[in-house]
């Protein structure tokens, strides 16, 4: 069989996947636009970006990690747990009567919550990384287990209930600069840019690809493989912290399971974005397009007034389509 998609150079292949994703996004957008012209309104497009900002930030971490050959399916649980902790702090802070002796804490509860969230993100990333490295088990299994632990912790802390921000701390999730551009989109753009630079223009990025492509060869070439892996997990933890802040700020309440779905959604986005599940392959651009596609499908269904439960089915089909494309274009006769 002749494979029309075959290319000699890795570059061309990546471009092609990006192109395919881009075309798919255009097709979905056009369909939605035809059914409901409101889809193309600038307001709705900004909405979409705002909606995907959390997913995008989480997926960037997961994507970089997966390129280095490690998988993390506890990210959703991490975000949930951090959301609970931060909402708890802010809620407690808000309950202090304004005339109490410790009223100054009302002001400080928000920055305190932000700091705690980031520290917690670093801690969770470190813990995951350490367990993966020390247990020598596959990170899929390790993060499956740790995800369960994090979910349990979140439930314990929240006692099954929820915490509410009562309208405080809306900066990250709801504020719009000049009443127009949501702050969360700026953070998304920043993270995507950072990922692009890291993956494409830094040695650290190159090491991620090398380790994902052949860990042993990378090790013998003098790369500190465990240190790079550790950094990868910590990066994921920190990005999850940012995601948690944005998400809870937007939603206003935190439940123990608020963000659990991001575990698989992020992985789906990353895989649609062409990162090989075996590591070593993928670019920041197609990663972002993967996130965008998944975000647009959800929004388009709502705007087109189609049953939103179709979303799951569509996303499943998109994943299959994307990996089939990568499989075909990467098809090689040598194993």
């Amino acid at each position: 069989m002749k494979l029309p998609l075959r290319r000699v150079e890795g570059k061309e292949l990546e471009l092609n996947l990006s192109l395919l994703l881009f075309i798919t996004i255009l097709v979905v957008a056009t369909a939605a636009w035809i059914v409901n012209p409101r889809f193309m309104r600038i307001g709705n497009l900004i909405n979409i970006l705002q909606q995907i900002s959390v997913l995008g930030i989480v997926a960037c971490g997961v994507g970089m990690l997966l390129i280095s050959g490690q998988i993390d399916i506890s990210v959703g649980n991490q975000v949930s747990l951090m959301g609970i902790v931060m909402a708890l702090i802010i809620e407690r802070g808000g309950r202090i009567p304004p005339d109490a002796a410790n009223a100054w804490m009302i002001q400080w509860s928000i920055p305190f919550a932000v700091i705690v969230t980031f520290v917690l993100g670093a801690v969770l990333g470190t813990v995951t990384g350490l367990v993966v490295i020390k247990s020598r088990a596959h990170s899929f299994i390790v993060t499956l287990a740790l995800g369960s632990v994090y979910r349990g912790l979140a439930l314990l802390i929240s006692r099954g209930g929820s915490f509410t921000l009562h309208g405080r701390f809306t900066l990250l999730g709801r504020t719009r600069i000049m009443g127009f551009l949501p702050v969360s989109i700026i953070f998304l753009a920043f993270v995507v840019l950072l990922t692009t630079v890291l993956l494409k223009y830094t040695r650290y990025g190159r090491f991620l690809y090398s380790i994902g492509g052949n860990r042993k060869a990378a090790y013998v070439s003098g790369i500190k493989t465990t240190a790079v892996t550790m950094r990868g997990f910590i990066t994921v933890g920190l990005l999850n912290a940012l995601a948690a802040l944005i998400l809870i700020s937007r939603v206003g309440t935190a439940l123990a399971g608020t963000a659990d779905a991001y575990s698989l959604d992020a992985l789906a986005a990353v895989v649609v974005g062409g990162v090989a599940i075996t590591g070593g392959k993928g670019t920041a651009l197609s990663l972002f397009l993967g996130v965008l596609l998944i975000g647009i499908v959800g929004n388009a269904l709502v705007v087109m007034n189609v049953n939103p439960h179709l979303r799951g089915i569509l996303i499943g089909l998109i994943i299959i389509g994307s990996v089939t494309f990568s499989g075909l274009s990467e098809h090689k006769s040598r194993t």
Binding site: K200, Y201, T202, F207, G213, N214, V220, S221, K281
Partner: peptide, 30 residues
């Protein structure tokens, strides 16, 4: 343990160099 097979020829050839340059604190951009 010699090659990252799915990477291009040039990235394989320069890999050790990059490791050394990191240590030599040459700026970390490629």
């Amino acid at each position: 343990s010699g090659l990252v097979l799915i990477q291009p020829v040039y990235e394989n050839i320069t890999l050790v160099r990059l490791v050394k340059e990191i240590k030599a604190r040459i700026r970390s951009f490629l």
